[in-house]
Design a protein around this nucleic acid. Sequence first.
DNA 1: CGCTCATTTGAACGGCGTCAAGAGGAGTGG
DNA 2: CCACTCCTCTTGACGCCGTTCAAATGAGCG
Lengths: 242, 242
Amino acid sequence: MNMMGKIAPALPDLEPGHPCFDCAVRELAVCGVLEAAALRAFKSSGPTVHYKAGDTVVFEADEAANVYSLTAGLLRLSKLLPDGRRQIAGFLFPGDFLGITMEEEHAFTAEAVAPSTLCKFPRSRFDQMVASNPQLERRLYAVAAHELAAARQQLVLLGRKTATERVASFLLMISGRCTTRQGAEIDLPISRIDMADYLGLRIETVSREISALKVARVIQLTGRQTFRIIDRNRLDQLADGE
Amino acid sequence: MNMMGKIAPALPDLEPGHPCFDCAVRELAVCGVLEAAALRAFKSSGPTVHYKAGDTVVFEADEAANVYSLTAGLLRLSKLLPDGRRQIAGFLFPGDFLGITMEEEHAFTAEAVAPSTLCKFPRSRFDQMVASNPQLERRLYAVAAHELAAARQQLVLLGRKTATERVASFLLMISGRCTTRQGAEIDLPISRIDMADYLGLRIETVSREISALKVARVIQLTGRQTFRIIDRNRLDQLADGE
DNA sequence: CGCTCATTTGAACGGCGTCAAGAGGAGTGG
DNA sequence: CCACTCCTCTTGACGCCGTTCAAATGAGCG
């Protein structure tokens, strides 16, 4: 039943002019399971759209008329309580799929954290593609199962972990997701506010915890948006509360 | 794309002797989408198993060799941190499916909260059934999407809601899930410890919040395991932090 | 009745939030 | 180059919500 990680073969028969030809995440995204012919039909059903940082892709409670595949950038999924409290349920990285729902409306708002590019498909058209491509259906299930596991892992963090453990866990997650450049320098494309709203903390607490990790020589801030892990083992320990 | 809630037709051609014939949740469960013939083949691939309250159905980190459909009882999905802290990620009610994962191991422990009955299927056999029944695949995706939405909703609760809001939300959830008997009496088959571990609180806090709701005449405890909602509107307000 | 275990209640503590001020960059204009 | 503003992030002081520790109450059951 394991299909995550099984990567579709290269598609040498896809012509260079096709928009998917040089897609950086083609094998990662849901489209990765499609044959060249199916991919052509698929892609032709929707445009590529761009959003700049801060833009809203879909509003919570909007009709779920489209689904998206993120090819570049970074999105956040969030929900706002009536009094202004906000919780971020997760981040979408390139290759991730936006629109896993059986409901008529979206349950969360999706906003661009960084300038982002997405392939946009009308839901009706997408459903047809899914119906006629069993592998796509299977891939969607795999993606949903993966997201579910991640969400449940986050439940443990929010329900039972301390501020120190949450921040340490977050930095480890980022280090696994964000391109580590030369010298293990890690990009941190997320503001303190977004970190706080993802971790169920306030920005002051996040800032204090990061400072503490810095003082303890576990990490090193190499720039406003970059850091370096000095003591990986210690960070692992802190994340697990040891 | 909406398939939740679309109930399969009755199956008059299923013989009375078949184990699924009088299954209380047949139309609710994943099996609900199967034709009588497919259902026969499906059911024959695994036995019915029983667990008493407290028993473990699958251990976290166990090999995911089987999948299950819960026909009666109540399960909890939980994870234990090394130092004993525990978080319950969700409860499974009759009709729910256990085994949504693409990994080789289970990520959470599943234990019986009440005496429970499950249909057990070897994963390999189940995958075959899924492969040859597209509707089953679609149903599984729908179930996963539904669970994902529920988990993300719980993220908001754990990350941003107060103790009062959490307990009020929980009682409302239970009132929607548990058979309300005569006089709107609601069964509460979950201990304070499980409530606390689900809500990210301590049992003393849960107890205090319930007492406060009782004193405020919002609910009424009619027994150790049953309660009644006196002021539904107020409970809704409290759950949303108004 | 007496044991055990779940739940409730009380009192004091502490981690994280709140409020407030300061530090550090990035951009703009002189 | 500095001066100024804006904004994010950091740091400090204090307060509160939920936890911790402790004990009482109550339900189930031999």
